[in-house]
């Protein structure tokens, strides 16, 4: 089985007078939650619609779950679910009818239909809303139902465009928990947003799109990264911290003064423990010492800075 759930090669898309996507190539790791980030107008929605086989690109190839989306869009649709940024529901229908239609339209038939609806309702935690009309639901509940529709046929890949837009903090938290649960069930998620804080809660990978080009595609929060940022804080000012850190092999000072420092340390936990022992042995009054985890926003901004 291929490691990539999504493989894109040389994808280009044009609007009149504008090249929205320009030779985009990347892979999305199977079982990951990949955050597609970029400024407004970067081409995120266009890219997701091409991946979902809803818009036809000018050039390039797209494979989802090893199916060529451009050659066999109908087969690819069985492998993937897509939630648009501006989705709609059949407001006069009940949630049960909406889910039942989505399942039946995706080939679930007979006695399996009721079980599929019950399963989707349980996964999405909307079992108590099955008899409510879709038009009567809150924004967060509608979002859950819409994700339930996209998941009704149990796709391998779920693509979501701005899924948390307009949701309150509680609903966003709940959505993050849902995405983590789906990932644990083996679903590969590709989620776009320009609000990075919401993606940070559940993303494992970051894909940065800017002006129609991919400028970064990498894993986040890697425990075996060769580099790590260490934040050091002292209980009282102490001279000589900068000199001590500068003399330590593999430590690059980002900032340092008499009250503390931020360093980029090469190596893993062993080097980290060695540095800590060295500082304690030297008599520095340490009040805090630990890895500073780079959040998605910091990572994105660093990537953009590096590529400019």
């Amino acid at each position: 089985m291929s490691r990539a759930a999504i493989a894109v090669e040389g994808l280009s898309f044009e609007y009149p007078g504008v090249r929205a996507l320009d030779g985009v190539s990347f892979e999305v790791v199977r079982g990951s939650v990949t955050a597609l980030v970029g400024p407004n107008g970067a081409g995120k929605t266009t890219l997701l619609r091409c991946l979902a086989g809803l818009d036809r690109p000018l050039l390039g190839t797209v494979q989802v779950a090893a199916v060529d989306v451009l050659d066999e869009p109908r087969l690819a649709h069985r492998k993937l679910g897509f939630l648009s940024d501006f989705f709609g529901l059949y407001d006069p229908l009940t949630v049960r009818q909406c889910l039942s239609h989505a399942a039946a339209a995706n080939g679930v038939a007979g006695s399996a239909l009721a079980a599929t609806v019950a399963d989707a309702a349980a996964r999405l935690e909307i079992g108590d809303k099955l008899e409510a009309r879709a038009g009567e639901l809150s924004r967060g509940q509608r979002q859950r139902v819409a994700i339930g529709l996209a998941l009704a046929h149990r796709p391998e890949v779920l693509i979501l465009d701005e899924p948390a837009a307009g949701l309150d903090p509680e609903a966003r938290l709940s959505l993050a928990a849902l995405f983590k649960r789906l990932q644990s069930e083996g679903v590969t998620l590709l989620v776009s947003s320009h609000i990075l804080a919401e993606l940070d809660a559940y993303s494992t990978h970051m894909l940065v799109l800017r002006a129609g080009r991919i400028i970064e595609n990498r894993a986040l929060h890697e425990s075996n990264r060769p580099q790590r940022w260490i934040r050091i804080e002292l209980a009282a000012p102490a001279a000589g911290l900068r000199a001590r850190l500068a003399s330590f092999d593999g430590a690059a000072i980002i900032e340092a003064d008499e009250r503390g420092a931020l360093i980029d340390l090469a190596g893993g936990p062993v080097e980290q423990a060695r540095l800590l022992s060295s500082l304690v042995a030297a008599g520095f009054p340490l009040s805090a010492f630990g890895e500073l985890r780079e959040d998605l926003q910091a990572s994105y901004l660093r990537t953009v800075r590096e590529r400019q």
Binding site: A52, G53, L54, R74, H77, R78, L80, G81, F82, S84, F86, F87, G88, L89, Y90, D91, A102, A105, N106, G107, L149, A150, H153
Partner: peptide, 16 residues
Amino acid sequence: DEMRARTWDAQRMSAL
């Protein structure tokens, strides 16, 4: 009507 109600994309992606 489905395009305006934004339900058409889901229909296009169904197995029908």
